[in-house]
């Protein structure tokens, strides 16, 4: 264990802990834009700089490991002045159209600008203008709002193992883009959207569907597969308008394309809400009891006529483990056959 003090408070933490994490344990807030607890530290936004006694220049707390006897100060007039300059510089190259931005109210950059009271900007100048819009079906990429924190690049590489996007060019011309600046063509898991601290990456389906303050969050479990990721449905006027996942869930907040973007079936007019039975060549609505009676009668009839092995069961990956267990149990003891399989095995 390593002992250090932050703002005069002593704490003991494990070797290899960063100053930022140690500060968090002491409930000391340090602003940051590029850091994400699940991704490797980047040290690019320079907001999390702290002073360390004996070191002539400020260090980024997200990249600096603790060392024995370290004396850290997280806020001084000099540090706050530097943070303000950094924020002004970022905002000098930002559309600042918060009034119509999808992310307003839920945007880290906006929040920091608020806390640092940045009304005027000393540094006007050229802004990056990107005419081309990305035509992919899921992710709105408004790269003029990108602050190049690199979270999306890292989540795509480190968590998703895809690497569909990377930094390109350098200096002021730096941008994050797919190969040869084409439209995004990937798994569309949307992890990049989940980690973006600004309005640069948002879901296309979310556009103009409501501000976060009007939204009711409902936690549930994804029904797409047996993994059972935790979902948070964002509901406005009894309609799901977007889906996220919380970081403290067992799936750590990560989702796939189905969980994140595949929710339109919920309000689809084509969605089956009641069982249908085909009568006289036409599907007709029926009650659950009616439908189940019909199925059990048919199964019994087949079993008696052709034997239990004439029946096979195929289960779905959209069922939970428990449901799949019950299904095979039903096939073996109810029907009396071992003919049971599961689509995920194919």
């Amino acid at each position: 264990m390593i002992k250090l003090t932050i703002n005069g408070k002593t704490i003991e933490v494990a070797e290899g802990t960063t100053v930022l994490d140690a500060a968090k344990m002491l409930n000391i807030e340090i602003p940051t834009l590029c850091h994400h607890p699940k991704l490797t530290p980047f040290g690019g936004c320079r907001l999390c700089i702290v002073e360390v006694k004996g070191v002539p220049r400020p260090l980024t707390s997200c990249t600096t490991p603790v060392s024995e006897g370290m004396e850290v100060t997280t806020s001084t007039p000099a540090l706050e002045g530097l943070r303000k300059t950094v924020l002004e510089l970022i905002l000098s190259d930002h559309p600042n159209d918060c009034m119509v931005c999808e992310k307003a109210g839920d945007c880290t950059l906006q929040e920091l600008a608020y806390f640092y009271g940045i009304r005027e900007n000393r540094f006007g100048g050229e802004r990056r203008i990107y005419g081309k819009k990305d035509g992919n079906p899921f992710i709105e990429r408004d790269m003029e709002k990108c602050i190049l924190c690199g979270r999306c690049v890292k989540v795509c590489d480190e968590v998703q193992g895809v690497g569909a996007i990377d930094f390109a060019y350098r200096g002021f011309k730096s941008k994050i883009c797919p190969t040869f600046e084409k439209d995004l063509d990937c798994e569309f898991c949307g992890q990049c959207v989940a980690v973006c601290p600004t309005g640069a990456l948002t879901g296309k389906m979310w556009q103009l569907r409501g501000r976060q303050k009007d939204i009711k969050e409902i936690d549930t479990t994804c029904s797409y597969c047996g993994t059972g990721c935790n979902l948070t449905l964002h509901v406005r006027q009894n309609e799901v308008v977007r889906v996220t996942s919380k970081e403290d869930t067992w799936n750590e907040g990560w989702l796939c394309v189905k969980g994140r973007f595949g929710y339109s079936f919920i309000n689809s007019p084509d969605r089956l809400k009641k069982p249908l039975i085909k009568r006289n060549g036409k599907f007709e609505e029926a009650s659950w009891n009616e439908a189940l009676d019909y199925i059990s009668a048919k199964l019994r009839e087949i079993k008696e006529k052709h034997g239990p092995d004439s029946i096979a069961g195929l289960s779905s990956a959209r069922c939970t483990n428990e449901e799949n267990y019950l299904f095979q149990k039903f096939m073996r003891t109810g029907i009396g056959t071992n003919n049971v399989d599961h689509c995920a095995r194919l």
Binding site: V162, G163, D166, P178, T179
Partner: peptide, 17 residues
């Protein structure tokens, strides 16, 4: 990129750097 199983975006990032 396909032979090496690396996403071409990584090549593009280097080529433009």
């Amino acid at each position: 990129a396909s032979k090496l199983d690396i996403n071409p975006s990584i090549f593009y990032g280097i080529a433009t750097f």
